[in-house]
């Protein structure tokens, strides 16, 4: 029976809850969140493509300004920025919408009430996608594949393996696992940071709401205290999306820059202008 939660608001499951199953596929509430975020992005893209004006109004400027700012940062990274700017901005927008979706009224608080071992518990219809490790790990795997692909593209498959083996060659049995762990730590850190921050935000909001509505005489606080934390979550959602996007850019930049190895000085000199001044940061 669908209803709003009251006594079980403080319950926030660490894993996404299954709403229904189709054969072997478990359709979870975080999948609903991810689909909603994708739908919002698609509709917004369609709307902006139709309505975008050469001389933007205030509304258009409000949306274009942060994207142009991020594109400017990516453009300053390497000369090949056009190859990955869409990925970085796409990741930023997807994570931002997925994070902010959790702040909408009803998300996480309206769902099905199910019987469990500890009594009744609420299974929300929608859960912010970033509060599910599967979603954040999926995004991190995309990033990982892209920056490894850049490394393989610039070094060649054998050259990339040689990079992992390190120098001198007789140290390869020791250096290979160390390099491997170091590379894998990027994948884990990207996914765990985003998941940890968004999930902690969800728990914090649920706790604050439950605490302020628990006793009748503090009921007026229920309107103000969660509002403060909602404001903070708006900021954290933006910062986390930005950190993920910028780290993606930084890892790709490093994969491209590492190709130079010991020839960095020569190529820098070649890139410098005739008077010795460095060439512009990007083409």
């Amino acid at each position: 029976m669908p209803l709003a939660a009251s006594e079980s608001l403080i319950h926030v499951s660490i894993k996404a809850e299954t709403l229904f199953t189709i054969g072997p596929l478990h359709f979870t509430n975080s999948m609903v969140g991810a689909l909603l975020a994708s739908a919002i992005l698609l509709v917004a893209s369609w709307w902006f493509l139709r309505r975008a004006a050469m001389v933007p109004n205030r509304f258009q400027t409000a949306f274009e300004l942060p994207i142009e700012w991020l594109a400017g940062i990516v453009a300053g990274s390497t000369s090949r920025w056009r190859s990955y700017v869409a990925l970085v901005i796409g990741l930023f927008l997807m994570i931002l919408i997925a994070n902010w979706l959790g702040l909408l009224p009803g998300v996480g608080t309206i769902g099905l009430v199910r019987e469990s071992e500890g009594g009744k518990e609420l299974v929300p219809f929608v859960r912010p996608a970033s509060a599910d490790l599967n979603f954040t790990l999926g995004l991190a795997i995309i990033t990982f594949v892209v920056f490894v692909w850049w490394g393989v593209r610039l070094h060649g498959p054998l050259g990339y393996l040689k990079e992992l083996a390190g120098e001198p060659r007789y140290m390869a049995p020791l250096m290979f696992p160390i390099h491997l762990i170091s590379e894998l730590s990027r994948l884990v850190s990207l996914s765990m940071r985003l998941f940890g921050n968004v999930f902690a935000g969800e728990v914090l909001l649920a706790t604050m709401l439950a605490l302020t509505t628990a006793v009748l005489f503090v009921l007026p606080l229920a309107f103000f205290i969660p509002a403060i934390f909602l404001g903070l979550e708006l900021l954290f959602g933006f910062v986390q999306a930005l950190v993920f996007a910028l780290l993606t850019m930084a890892y790709i930049t490093l994969a491209i820059a590492e190709r130079q190895g010991g020839h960095a000085h020569d190529e820098s000199a070649a890139a410098a202008g005739p008077d010795g001044a460095p060439a512009p940061a990007h083409a």
Binding site: R80, R259, E267, H282
Partner: peptide
């Protein structure tokens, strides 16, 4: 093409890597 990152010091990318270092 030039493959070196911009040499502008504390770029947002560099700051991101610095914040990432602890967790890694």
């Amino acid at each position: 093409d030039r493959d070196t990152p911009s040499a502008s010091g504390a770029t947002p990318g560099n700051l991101g890597i610095a914040f990432d270092l602890g967790i890694r």
